[in-house]
């Protein structure tokens, strides 16, 4: 049996940022008070290689605002690990792109969170959309492979078909989509979050866009909080191949993934809240000790035993996929309810409720404190679908909200499911 899985780390090398995104989970802007020194960063690179990390993605904040970022990229490359980067793209000149190529950065993901007005609004900077596309042209010119990543929320979802056309035309090879969830700044802007019952209109649209993307050579990559087990699961998670086993197989935090914060905090996944999921700091313990011993990085071990599902509650506890799914994305569940194990952002779940004449929605209950990677708490409401939704909700998402440009008129809706064919 060939072994294909890779282990990778997502490393926030600085929290300093030149954008001010209203959905930013880390509330990036100013650098952290005690970010790792260059020497400490080089030592961490060495330790990552020793524990079996194969690939490192540099993020921020904005990674290129750290003066030694290209030295770190070069060190990662020289240690035998692949180095990639995720960026807001606000300020990568052609000269910088050439330096990135020389430092060994193999791939870049540029954040595009809507069409121009929406992107600039969400990212808090007029002109950031135009510069992101300029960055992509620079990457293309120097020959660095690039893709895009997009937050899926009530502002961006209506524009998804048009966003796709823009990034395809820019030459993006891949497109990762991720649901906006209430961590950090997004916790203070709950009105932009999709509601669980709105997934019923989101997923048919995503499937239609995904199918066209695959046909036109753009690999759509469903993030870990996209899913689960609905009629389009294999299409969305199969990266164009629709293999019979292309479906969600549980949270991978601490199994193949590490998240590293700029001050040396180690988590099992870069998205997880700092307070509840930090296993230790690289300044206090060796990386291999943290991975081996910290309970915060071991919570996904024990699948297939009672230990593997004991954290589940609510709908997820009784779901027929529970043993494999284990509550979907831990980050998503935690930032809504301050504990993992029950995730209403699930297509299968929304469909199940709809068949019973019910729907779910979330309402803010406890505010977040205002720290990086923090979360508040939401109340989960399950109600009959004939109950009138709250008034004064101008961002409410429906299928009618979606903007299909003329080119989509030739594209049939995706009404099939591989599972049923």
């Amino acid at each position: 049996m060939t072994y294909h899985r890779k282990s990778y780390a997502v490393w926030e090398i600085t929290l300093k940022c030149n954008l001010a995104c209203s959905h930013c989970g880390s509330r990036a802007g100013h650098e952290r008070t005690k970010e790792l020194s260059t020497e400490e960063a080089f030592d961490l690179v060495k330790q990552m290689a020793e524990v079996g990390i194969k690939e490192v993605t540099l993020i921020g904040g904005e990674a290129f605002l750290r003066p030694d970022w290209l030295e770190i990229a070069k060190a990662i490359n020289e240690a035998g690990m692949l180095c990639g980067m995720t960026t807001g793209g606000y300020g990568i000149s052609l000269e910088t792109a050439q330096k990135m190529k020389s430092a060994g950065i193999r791939s870049v993901s540029v954040s595009i969170d809507g069409l121009e007005a929406t992107h600039d609004r969400l990212r808090g900077k007029k002109g950031s959309w135009k510069y992101a596309f300029k960055t992509m042209s620079h990457l293309r010119e120097v020959g660095i492979y690039f893709g895009c990543n997009t937050q899926l929320n009530r502002l961006s979802a209506p524009e998804f078909p048009c966003i796709y056309e823009c990034i395809r035309d820019a030459g993006a090879g891949a497109w990762q989509i991720q649901m906006t969830v209430p961590m950090g700044n997004a916790a203070d802007n709950a009105d932009i979050l999709l509601q669980p019952h709105e997934l019923l209109d989101v997923y048919p649209m995503l499937a239609r866009v995904a199918r066209r993307a695959y046909q036109e050579g753009v690999q759509l990559q469903a993030g870990n909080n996209i899913g689960y087990y609905g009629p389009y699961e294999r299409l969305l998670r199969g990266r164009g191949k629709e293999d019979e086993f292309s479906f969600w197989q549980g949270c991978g935090a601490g199994l193949s993934t590490l998240g590293i914060e700029a001050d040396g905090a180690i988590k099992g996944c870069p998205s997880l809240p700092t307070t509840a999921y930090t296993g230790g700091n690289i300044r206090d313990h060796a990386l291999h000790e943290i991975i081996k011993s910290a309970e915060e990085l071991r919570f996904n071990l024990g699948a297939g035993t009672p230990e593997g599902t004991k954290h589940l509650w609510g709908f997820c506890k009784t779901c027929e996929y529970a043993e494999l799914c284990r509550g979907g994305c831990s980050w998503t569940a935690h930032v809504f309810f301050d504990k993992r194990g029950n995730n209403p952002y699930c297509h299968h779940r929304a469909l199940t409720h709809a068949e019973q004449g019910m729907r779910e929605r979330v309402v803010p209950k406890v505010k977040a404190q205002g720290l990086p990677f923090d979360n508040g708490e939401f109340e989960l409401i399950v109600e009959p679908t004939d109950v009138v939704l709250p008034a004064n909700d101008p961002l409410h998402f429906t299928a009618d909200s979606i903007q299909w440009s003329e080119s989509w008129q030739q594209e049939p809706e995706v009404s099939y499911s591989l599972a049923r064919s």
Binding site: R5, K6, S7, V51, G52, I53, Y229, P231, E233, R234, F247, G250, G252, L255, S256, L258, H288, I291, K292, N300, L301, G302, A303, G304, G308, E320, Y321, E323, L324, C325, R326, H348, A419, R420
Partner: peptide
């Protein structure tokens, strides 16, 4: 020795 480590109806 450390990473990566190891830790389904879809008739629907």
């Amino acid at each position: 020795p450390l990473l990566p480590r190891s830790a389904a109806v879809l008739e629907s």
